[in-house]
Amino acid sequence: MRVELDVPKCVASGQCVMAAPDVFDQRDDDGVAILLEERPGEELLDDVREAVAVCPAAAIRLVEG
């Protein structure tokens, strides 16, 4: 599974960092999301799914492949 982050849509709310801190971080100055792990391990997928669900900008997708 691969994570896609649509940076221009990101509103920097940090909800992905709260849900999946091993997969996402934020830029220090403006909080825009940073993808740390494009292909996170199986054990992190539940966190990523929560990040997808709580992102207010709908800027994260978890896709096959």
Partner: peptide, 21 residues
Amino acid sequence: DAPEHTRLRRTVNGPFVVKRI
């Protein structure tokens, strides 16, 4: 609305970054 909103929000968002909070 975006894109103006996105720009404005990013200028005031620094203090609310999760690690800083």
